[in-house]
Every structure is written in C-alpha cells, then in structure tokens.
Nucleic acid binder design. Structure first.
Lengths: 138, 138
DNA sequence: GTAATTGCTCTAGTCGCTAGAGGTTCAAGG
DNA sequence: CCTTGAACCTCTAGCGACTAGAGCAATTAC
C-alpha cells in the first residue's frame, strides 16, 4: 500500500495533482486509513501512470476519461481508442501548422530589424501595427 | 467616434475582450458618452489592431504591455522590441519542437493499431499503459 | 413614441493545475 | 509509551486570457 506521497514519487505526478485527478473522476476514490489518509495499491499506480502518459502526450482530461472507460471494457472494439488517439494526432498537427506560420512570420519580422534604429522606425513595431505587411496569414 | 461594437467589428476583437483589455491596462480608459458608453477614435482602433496582431502572433498580455510602452517612446532604441520578439520566436520554436515529438509518438502509436482488435490488446492502450514502449522522449 | 439593439457592470466559469492556510495523522526514535 | 516532525487532510483562491450570463440602462431607427 502506497501513501499519496509514495504514489507521487513512483509516478512523477505531484500530490495535489493526484487529488485533483480523483476529484475529476480520473482516479476512483481512494481507500482510506482509519485516520482518513489515502492508500493506493499497484492498480492505482498503473492507472495513474496511464493518465500521466496520456497527459504528457497532450490528451485532455476529457479524452483520458474516455480512454479509461474503454480500458474498463477490455473486450470491446478498440476502434474508439484509435479514434480518440487519431483526433489527438490531428489536433497536434493542426497546432504545429499554426505555430509554424507564426514562426515564419516572427522570423521575418525580427529579421527586418537589426536592433540599431529607434522604436519609431522599428520593423518589429510597424509590422505589428500594420497587418498588411505580413507575408502569410496567421 | 466608434462605439465599442463598431470597434469590435473594425478590429475583429470581441466586445467583452475589448473591455478586458481596458481592464488589464492594454487600452487606456475610454472616453464616455453622457450616458456612460465607451467611444473610440482612430487611435484607439490602431492600438487595438496592434494588440490583436500581437496576440495572434502569440505574444502574452505582459509582452504586449512592454511593446506598447516602447511604442510610447518612439525615439528610444528598438533593441528592446527586437528582444521581446526574439524571445517569442524562441518560445514558438520550442513549442513546435515539443509538439513534433508528440506527433511522432502519436503517429507511431496509432499506426500500431488497425482498429480491428479489442481494447485489451489495443496498441494504443498498451502504449499508454507502458511508457517503456515509447520510442523518443516526451 | 416605442421597440429593438446595443451598451453597461458584475459575477462566475473555462482548463489543468498550483499555492497557501490551518489543522490532523502517521512513523520513527528515545 | 511518548514525543517529534514529516507527511497528510480539506478548503479556498489564483494563474492566463478570455467567455457567458444576469439584470439593467442607453442609444438608434422607424
């Protein structure tokens, strides 16, 4: 049996975050000692590791809730799980595309300024003032 | 003179967001009609457009506050402006790198699942359970 | 003159935590 | 057995950048 602190060390998830996950329903309500402290077993640890890994991959709490529900029905089709993961992949790719557009624009803007002029004529400042100076759309 | 709604239409910034920006000090306190409604002039519009453009490029409210302060001193060196923009560029590039790592991992995980099996043996699910199955770090 | 639209302030909610206050329980050492 | 100190408990509030809604006032168009 692990205390919440031990679970935290084993999983790399901070103590308040574990309580938060319980509160949000990702973790079942933990067993308690007579004094009211949470105690966990190996199942709790592996579930928490699953959650952490999914969070690290950018899944939302809601998506993880869905995945965990699937996990509790091991004999159903895994198509739903794949769908959730593919949705997440799509979102990540979209974000990368958006950020790449920003990167190009920021690089262009900062390149246009050598840092030696005054704010009034600064290419960074005028670019921000006038969207028409932008190359792509963002 | 624009009403807040007209300013919103001209700038593409929602009405409550404009009020929020005023509250946060990005926009000066607007002039008011006798009845207490906000009125804006062309200056207000261009300032708001500056803010929107910067937000679209991912600058934080704090960074924008800095840029706006620079804008009010047009004869000072533009190096500070360039620094703020370069910091933002660095952050964007970092985020892209992180997301790219996630993308690779998600693609690998979803590729390993053809959607025909059951949750129990699903590569998506086992990958999430066991971090050791991961290729890179994330 | 009246009705529809737009405006006002204020509070609370979003997401995924994080920080702190103020109090209780546990485990180890004497 | 008793004390000490670390770890635990609950609860509330805060982060960033908005967004939503209630309940009411002003403006505008006909």
């Amino acid at each position: 049996m692990y205390s919440i602190g031990a679970l935290s060390r084993q999983s790399g998830v901070k103590v308040p975050t574990i309580r938060y996950y319980e509160d949000r329903g990702l973790l079942p309500e933990a067993e308690r000692t007579a004094g009211g402290q949470r105690r966990y077993n190996a199942d709790g640890l592996s579930r928490l590791r699953f959650i952490k890994h999914a969070r690290d991959l950018g899944f939302s709490i809601e998506a993880i809730t869905g995945l965990l529900q699937l996990q509790e029905h091991p004999d159903t089709s895994c198509q739903s799980a794949q769908t959730i993961a593919l949705d997440q992949l799509t979102e990540v790719r979209l974000k990368i595309a958006q950020l790449s557009a920003l990167e190009r624009e920021l690089a262009r803007i900062t390149d246009g300024c050598n840092g030696t002029g005054t704010t009034k004529n600064c290419y960074v400042m005028t670019s921000l003032s006038d969207h028409d100076l932008c190359a792509g759309d963002h």
